[in-house]
């Protein structure tokens, strides 16, 4: 019976889609059959980040409306085994999502997949609510920045009150904090919130810290999840985070300012 994991944040542009792609790929690389679903109807990006935008025929909304079967809409990733993508519609909007429709798709996916990663849109309206409603676990993607932290707090409130588990009085959704775009140098200069500040406000377990990295933009432009760029700090940090999610004990890396050696500074190299 598959687990539904929502990547949510409230705030836009913090790294939900990047993280959804990275986590889904990370699970699949470790042998778990995984599907990643784009809930951002009308503003779809997951297919671009996963590099399958040239193969989309049917989408999530077609399946909800009964216009296509789930296996017609699922796209198998070409690079990684066990990995599937369910893209969403670009021409519809969030009103096309219905609770019954989403529930039916989730039930079908649960039978086949170990992990179902739901890439939530920004906001707290229908799209975001549908993405978090059926979740068993939630990864709250947060930037070390005041607006993002406040929005994450709001989303935590919604998970506690508006998720299916909350409505039915089941075990609450397991919450994890993923701190993204972390820049230790700026934290040291006092320009950016540090980990402790964020944890104090949100008070949920820290899953991972993903450093700010140019590799993320490169990855998105070539349609390859950044976790596959194992030379990059972001890629490695995502890999660590996936391991921690699956229960491994892994030290947090990339959290301290790196004293760049003369050579690195001359060559202008960044992680």
């Amino acid at each position: 019976m598959g687990q539904i994991i929502v990547m949510t944040s409230g705030k836009g542009g913090v790294g939900k889609t990047t993280s959804s792609a990275a986590f889904a790929t990370g699970f699949a690389l470790r042998g778990h059959k995984t599907v990643v679903i784009d809930f951002d109807v009308g503003l779809r990006n997951l297919d671009l980040i996963m590099g399958c935008e040239r193969r989309v025929v049917f989408d999530f909304i077609n399946v909800i409306n009964g216009e296509a079967k789930l296996n017609q809409a699922l796209i198998k990733d070409k690079r990684v085994d066990n990995l599937y993508i369910l893209p969403t519609s670009q021409t519809r909007d969030k009103d096309a999502l219905t609770k019954e429709g989403v529930e039916a798709v989730m039930e079908e996916l649960r039978k086949e997949f170990e992990f179902i990663v739901c890439d939530s849109p920004a906001g707290i309206e229908k799209g975001a609510l549908m993405a978090l409603y059926f979740a068993d676990q939630a990864v709250i993607v947060t930037n070390p920045e005041v607006s993002s932290v406040r929005d994450s707090d709001r989303v935590l409130g919604m998970l506690a009150a508006r998720s299916r588990r909350a409505e039915l009085g089941l075990e609450p959704v397991t919450e994890h904090l993923l701190l993204t775009r972390y820049d230790p140098n700026r934290v040291e200069r006092g320009e950016m919130l540090n980990v402790e500040d964020v944890l104090e406000i949100l008070a949920i377990p820290l899953l991972g810290i993903i450093p700010e990295s140019q590799a993320v933009l490169r990855a998105s432009n070539i349609g390859q999840p950044v976790i596959l760029d194992d030379g990059s700090s972001a890629g490695q940090a995502y890999s660590d985070a996936v391991g921690r999610f699956l229960g491994e004990q892994i030290e947090h890396r990339f959290t301290k300012p790196q004293k760049r050696g003369l050579f690195a500074r001359l060559l202008g190299r960044t992680a």
Binding site: V57, F58, N62, N65, E67, A68, T91, R92
Partner: peptide, 10 residues
């Protein structure tokens, strides 16, 4: 209206 099916020739 909006809902048109991509390929199932409906």
């Amino acid at each position: 209206p909006a809902a048109a099916r991509p390929a199932a020739a409906a």
